[in-house]
Computed example of a mutant assay.
Amino acid sequence: MKTNIMKSNFKLLAIFTFLGLFLNSCSSDDDGVSDASAPVITNFEFGEGSDHSTEPFAYKGSDLHLEAEINAEGIVRSISIDIHADDVQVGEDEVEWDYENTYTNASYLVINPTFHEHIDIPSNIPAGEYHIVLTVTDELGNSTEIEGHLEILDPIVISDFSMDTTVQRGSDFHVEFMIDAVNGIHNITVDIHAHDLTIGEGEVEWDYEEIFEDGFHEEIEAEFHKHIDVPLTAPAGEYHVLFTVEDEDGNTKEYETHIDVTA
């Protein structure tokens, strides 16, 4: 009788041992999936696309270079880029820029790919600081992201502007400012015109436009310093003054102001 009980206990012990080993094996298999290392992103760099710069800035109207090394135990399923602004103000004739793209090129859907892309930067977005996030996801569902900050700059900057606020007709007024143009200056246009001024006896409507190129063409940095004559016959009143700097890539920067012409 005791022998039969012992045999039964031995069989139960064997069954429990088998079940324990089986469940432990399943658990180990599950852990093998969930514990697989997530992709590792190294040497993440971004900057001006023209010279593959690693400095974290680029210019409106140009392109942005991005590159990163990816080490992944599982085959990469996708690589995503997200670029959005951090508290930049959208000016007149500008639009907000949020960039998102997911790359599934065959060259990236491998183990340990090198990510390398160029992204066009619109010319009509606000300059300022942008947040950039690179996310890598593998076929096991593991994902890793790395982030940084990108400064988007104007390709043309007008600074230290100074101009007379009033001018007597028959004389001239003075204007000067500094220009920084990373692509080189093509020309500078000055446009002066009035709105709804009454033309008196002996007066002639005055619309002024002149393009300045000599001394500025292809210069990266220059000082604009001119004296502009106002005809003696110009009607007195307020005039709108617009300065437009165009660079060698066709980008433009405007600066507008007003001047009062007195009799």
Rank of each mutant, 00 (worst) to 15 (best):
K2R: 13
K2F: 06
T3C: 00
T3P: 00
T3A: 10
I5W: 05
M6R: 13
S8W: 08
S8F: 13
N9E: 11
K11Y: 08
L12P: 00
L12H: 09
F22V: 14
F22M: 14
L23C: 10
L23G: 02
N24V: 12
S28Y: 09
A36N: 07
S37K: 13
I41D: 01
F44V: 06
E45A: 13
S50A: 12
S53I: 03
E55A: 14
A58W: 05
A58K: 09
A58S: 15
L64P: 04
L64A: 07
I70L: 05
I70D: 00
N71A: 13
A72R: 06
G74K: 14
G74L: 05
I75M: 12
R77F: 08
R77T: 02
I79L: 12
S80L: 08
S80T: 11
D82A: 11
H84I: 04
D86P: 03
G91P: 13
G91A: 12
E92R: 07
D93S: 12
E94W: 11
V95Q: 11
V95Y: 08
W97A: 03
W97L: 04
D98Y: 07
Y103Q: 10
Y103C: 10
T104W: 03
N105E: 15
A106Y: 04
Y108M: 06
L109N: 15
P113N: 09
E117S: 01
E117F: 03
H118L: 12
D120F: 09
I121W: 02
S123Y: 06
S123R: 06
S123D: 11
N124F: 13
P126R: 02
E129F: 05
Y130D: 00
H131F: 08
I132D: 02
V133Y: 04
T137W: 05
T137H: 04
E145Q: 14
I146Q: 09
I146K: 13
P155K: 03
I156W: 03
D160F: 04
M163C: 02
D164F: 07
T165Y: 04
T165I: 10
T165C: 00
T166Y: 05
V167K: 04
V167M: 04
Q168V: 15
R169D: 01
R169Y: 04
G170C: 11
S171C: 00
H174V: 07
H174N: 13
E176L: 12
F177Q: 01
A181H: 02
N183Y: 11
N187G: 06
I188T: 10
I188D: 00
V190K: 06
H193W: 10
D196W: 06
L197I: 09
T198D: 07
I199W: 05
E201L: 14
E203Q: 15
E205Q: 07
W206Q: 06
E213V: 12
D214L: 11
D214K: 15
F216Y: 15
H217F: 15
I220G: 05
F224W: 02
H225T: 10
P231T: 10
T233W: 14
G237F: 08
E238P: 03
E238F: 07
Y239P: 03
E246S: 08
E246H: 02
E246Q: 10
G250N: 00
N251R: 11
H258E: 12
A263Q: 11
